[in-house]
Simulated scan of single mutants.
Amino acid sequence: MTRELIPGARADVDTDLFTYRSLLDDTEVELLGGLRDWLEEHLAPVVDDHWARAEFPHDLIPKVAGLDIMGLALDMSERPARRRLLSGFVGLEIARIDASFASFYGVHSGLAMGSIHQCGSDEQRERWLPAMRRLDKIGAFGLTEPHGGSDVAGGLETTARRDGDEWVIDGAKRWIGNGTFADLIVVWARDVADDQVKAFVVEKDMPGFAATKMENKLALRITQNADLTFDGVRVPEANRLQNANSFNDTNAVLRSTRGSVAWSAVGVMTGVYEVVVQYAKDRIQFGRPIAGFQLIQDHLATILANLSAALGMAARGSQLQDEGVFRDEQGALVKSFCTTRLRESVALAREVMGGNGILLEYGMARFFNDAEALYSYEGTREINTLIVGRSITGESAFT
């Protein structure tokens, strides 16, 4: 018995066993269908090559702009807000093909646009968001620092000093997605006058600002993470986000975007499941497809269970966001749970695929590596469990 083994082939399988997509209306389903077709035609054929070379497909930016998916959940003068549930499914569809392009989408549409929408004045929203929606301007989000990751709330070292009608920013940021080519970077800095964290929109051509690509990553290689430095960068008061006056405002942005990372994890699990099911059907060992072996079916069932549970939690989280009642502990739990289940699922899928699971062309090695980044960013599993634990007990276990 022989069967052709096609690298990267995907099964046409039910990835929504509990029918969460039925929560969407016809217009939303149509939008997602058009997005999936676009991703299959434009992104899927080039993603492995760009991942291997650690390069971003910049030529796709004008093409994706035509889909009008940026800032979907934000209420703008030219377009009313769409549901967070829809925005979540958009992130899923992108991550199903590539987690790095989903990261580009999440950083620009969620973190950068979301910060401006949530923390900016009416004038600032009108100045920046329409261009960002059209992708005429690309955004980034500068919070993490060389010495500050999990403890950045208390250890933020980048400073802002008021000097007349300007602010002088000094410091450094690290792991900044879109950082090498962003036009606008939302930079969080500590005001030396009152020790409060504030946000500033730094434009890429401002003197004293520099961005350097981080090399030799083994995950999200297409994502252009950068080291940013600020050496006396002068930012006008007009570029200070007027409603960002403490780390509580920073955390409000992160609460929303942790849900987006969960959707990316669900998207990657969707792609993982499609690839591994097709592989199991096509791979012949001992005279028959490995899909017919009990241990393989156990792994496939576990992956589907993880995917189903994570999708349910992500969908409910988005509904709570739409209702305006999404809490810190819910955002922390959905992020940590979904990325933990992703990590388990992609390991099981790689195991099913054996040695072919570490070859880029078979579609699993990229998912396997990228899952490690999703597991860690926007709060490690341990930090997020402490947020949940504080809610459970009323006691803070943060040191």
Rank of each mutant, 00 (worst) to 15 (best):
Met76Cys: 12
Ala199Ser: 14
Gln118Trp: 01
Lys213Asp: 01
Ser391Met: 04
Ile185Tyr: 12
Val201Tyr: 10
Glu166His: 15
Gly179Leu: 02
Asn248Pro: 02
Ala252Met: 10
Ile290Lys: 02
His147Ala: 14
Gly354Lys: 07
Pro80Trp: 04
Leu311Ala: 10
Met70Asp: 07
His108Trp: 11
Ser345Pro: 05
Leu218Gly: 12
Gly179Phe: 03
Gln118Asn: 12
Glu41Ile: 04
Thr180Ala: 07
Gly120Ser: 12
Thr250Arg: 02
Tyr20Cys: 05
Arg84Pro: 03
Thr27Val: 12
Glu274Lys: 15
Ala244Pro: 07
Ile358Cys: 08
Arg221Phe: 04
Gln285Tyr: 06
Asn178Tyr: 03
Ala291Tyr: 12
Gln319Pro: 02
Lys335Phe: 00
Phe209Leu: 11
Arg83Leu: 09
Ala373Val: 11
Ala182Phe: 00
Glu123Gly: 11
Ala314Pro: 08
Val197Gln: 05
Gly179His: 02
Val388Ala: 08
Arg134Met: 09
Ala238Cys: 04
Lys63His: 08
Ile176Pro: 03
Arg327Pro: 00
Ser115Lys: 02
Gln278Val: 07
Gln297Asn: 14
Ala11Tyr: 01
Gln294Phe: 09
Asp37Tyr: 09
Gln278Met: 10
Arg53Trp: 03
Arg125Ala: 00
Pro80Asn: 08
Val266Lys: 06
Gly71Cys: 08
Ala238Glu: 13
Leu111Trp: 09
Arg10Asp: 00
Ala238His: 07
Arg79Ile: 01
Gln224Thr: 12
Leu60Tyr: 07
Gly34Arg: 15
Arg343Lys: 13
Trp128Ala: 08
Glu30Thr: 15
Leu304Phe: 00
Pro146Arg: 08
Gly287Arg: 10
Thr144Lys: 13
Lys137Asp: 13
Ile303Gln: 04
Ala347Cys: 03
Ile6Trp: 04
Leu43Ser: 08
Ala291Thr: 00
Arg390Ser: 07
Gly155Ala: 13
Glu28Asp: 15
Ala349Ile: 08
Asp298Lys: 11
Val266Glu: 04
Pro130Asp: 06
Leu86Phe: 05
Ile358Phe: 05
Val107Cys: 12
Leu135Ile: 04
Arg258Ala: 11
Thr257Gln: 08
Asp282Cys: 09
Leu254Pro: 01
Ala365Asn: 11
Leu320Arg: 13
Thr158Gln: 06
Lys335Pro: 10
Thr158Val: 15
Leu311Gln: 14
Glu93Pro: 00
Gly292Lys: 04
Val29Met: 12
Val276Pro: 03
Ser391Tyr: 13
Tyr105Ala: 01
Ile116Asn: 07
Ala172Tyr: 06
Arg341Ser: 05
Leu143Ser: 00
Met70Ser: 11
Gly363Gln: 05
Arg162Gly: 00
Leu300Cys: 10
Trp188Thr: 06
Arg221Glu: 01
Val107Ser: 03
